[in-house]
Nucleic acid binder design. Structure first.
Lengths: 354, 354
DNA sequence: CTGAAAGCGCTTACAG
DNA sequence: CTGAAAGCGCTTACAG
């Protein structure tokens, strides 16, 4: 019970410090520090002892103390043309991890390719130790190349086709779209229409290809008039859905490449007095807030956007720390799990108690 | 030019420290600390000198160092039934300020009144130094009373009628709704319908009252069939809008008490082949992401949700610091500015270049 | 009202 | 491979 303090201050179970770990493992604090930071100059036996002590004590590094010593790590976020929903979900995860890592987030807007270079320069001027690149910039070879050329630790976020020489965090867009298509097929729908996303975005390409592949795999050919081109905006979804539903024969379901367009499809269907999902089932992709705002709520592929933000910060901070210490850092690709989120727009089963 | 470092590390202009300030003001670091923290035991003359030096050096307190010394401040967020859009916007602001203040954010969900007490107990067990209470809990006297009884620094967020003995940050809902109504009138609309929000929420009450008062002030009587009851959800907005538009004579405009219901009204209008805004103008309230997702984009009252989060954290941290130091803290009410956000749903003027 | 001393938990050189 | 020393910028007692 000696870990209960009654003095002033936070009045918490006083957390274990490096010295507690050092004492328990019978080594110096310095050695504990080395183990924590993945320094190689520690014998395997010593490392084990320290790790054991850390585990037993439930020790976690005090980021405030570390930041006081090392200076705060600055993570730059280069973003452009943000979907408000995506960006805020991403920020929530990124900021949470920054807090945990003792890092600071610097936001840098970047209108288009022309201003990219300037935005990167500004990030450097602000002392960024690493940079995060969310869509659509994550698919810009120019931006990524420049960051790489100057040796800046960089993580591309939510690109479907990550370059081999840049770290990235993403979901498997192809498999997500495959799973959604398979789900719609499992409902008995065979006549499924698709609203494509912005052709310049790699996720849009893969989602569409997965849809086509899965349909073909089920022995189904999708006629051209069941495919409409959208650009990820609600407005483009309205146009695309009107086009799809203008035909004499209507599809049994519409799979939109993102939620904004899926929500638009629901609105268009309602406008034609079609019931969703009784007359037509509709699905989206991403699980942004609009998916649960509209009625019926949208069946969609849940993309853990906050998690992506968290993982991206974790990765870039790790690289930046290595970079500061003069060590090389490896590029790494993390694929986070997606999840099928089945809601009323395909099942007709209400989940709210109202 | 002696503030340029070329050594290793962040390679920044090395920021001024307390000692730099102390040297310049010819006092001790201790005195600088006292000035920074609003300690009263400093002579006016000394305070002035220090403040001047701080200003000249552009000194800002190093939160990492402070946190290392004081222990991290923990801000609890008690939330329930969150609108995903509101919560994530709020979190962005709250987390940003937490980072600046060297505080940590602890999220505690709280289903209903029954679990409120437990949620508060959990927050205390997690060592919360202060608590933020966003809607709809901010209007629960029971929750606020309990927090007050145990002397917990507390800030109510976005309640329209803040209790005098609890700090609060909010916008002026009444004035925002008044301004929107006046704007719709200025467009020449006299026949304006209103979709009310959840009657239990204080902002809903004030927004409706402001609408009625402003109409009356313009010499207009709003008939009962121009008023529909909603509950802040998209679904309730669909029902309300259908009801409003079922009459032989249609209103010239609809003012919905929030964006979700405004977006629903747009969908219903489109379903009846009405053009927005040519046949009917529609406005919302809050400026959450859905307002810019739907098409046409929604004219609305911009509520600076992120700013509310930032201000709430700033306030609660200030109170918690005073509380830790054994000093009393005053309750304070901050009213943040709202802004009329005029978009296509009332003007017909597109702002996008597509 | 003001200051000298000690210490928060960690890491960076510097020695072995 | 390992450790003793010094210091990051700040604040908390403790003296005046």
């Amino acid at each position: 019970m000696d870990d209960l303090k009654e003095g002033n201050g936070p009045a918490q179970h006083s957390a274990a410090t490096m010295y507690d770990v050092a004492r328990r493992a019978k080594v110096s604090a310095m050695t504990v520090s080395r183990v924590i930071n993945g320094n190689n100059y520690v014998s395997e036996a010593t490392r084990e002892k320290v790790l054991k002590a850390i585990d037993e004590l439930g020790y976690r590094v005090n980021v405030a103390a570390r930041a006081a010593r090392m200076g705060t790590m600055r993570v730059g976020l280069l973003y452009s043309n943000p979907s408000a929903a995506f960006l805020s979900a991403f920020l929530v995860g990124a900021m949470a991890q920054c807090a945990r890592s003792g890092a600071e987030l610097i936001l840098e807007p970047c209108e288009d390719v022309a201003t990219q270079r300037k935005a990167i320069d500004r990030l450097i001027a602000h002392g960024a130790d690493g940079v995060l690149v969310p869509p659509p910039l994550c698919d810009s070879p120019a931006a990524l190349k420049r960051l790489r050329d100057i040796g800046m630790p960089t993580v591309a976020v939510a690109t479907a086709k990550p370059a081999a020489n840049i770290s990235a965090v993403r979901i498997d867009d192809y498999d997500g779209a495959r799973a959604m298509t398979a789900y719609l097929l499992s409902l008995g729908h065979t006549d499924i229409a698709f609203i494509k996303g912005d052709p310049n975005h790699t996720p849009a390409q893969l989602r569409y290809r997965a849809f086509q592949d899965t349909m073909r795999g089920a022995g189904l050919i999708v006629p051209a008039h069941r495919i409409a081109q959208g650009f990820f905006t609600y407005k483009s979804g309205l146009t695309a859905a009107r086009q799809l539903l203008a035909h004499d024969s209507r599809p049994a379901a519409i799979f939109a490449a993102n939620d904004d367009m899926g929500a638009a499809a629901v609105a268009v269907a309602h406008g034609m007095h079609l019931r969703v999902p009784e007359d037509i089932a509709i699905a989206g992709f991403d699980d942004t807030p609009v998916a649960t705002t509209v009625w019926p709520e949208l069946t969609t592929v849940h993309q853990p956007i906050g998690e992506l933000g968290r993982a991206a910060v974790e990765l870039v901070v790790e690289q930046a720390r290595a970079s500061r210490a003069g060590e090389p850092f490896a590029t790494r690709h993390a694929v986070m799990p997606y999840r099928l989120e089945i809601r009323e727009s395909t099942t007709g089963v209400s989940s709210d108690g109202a």
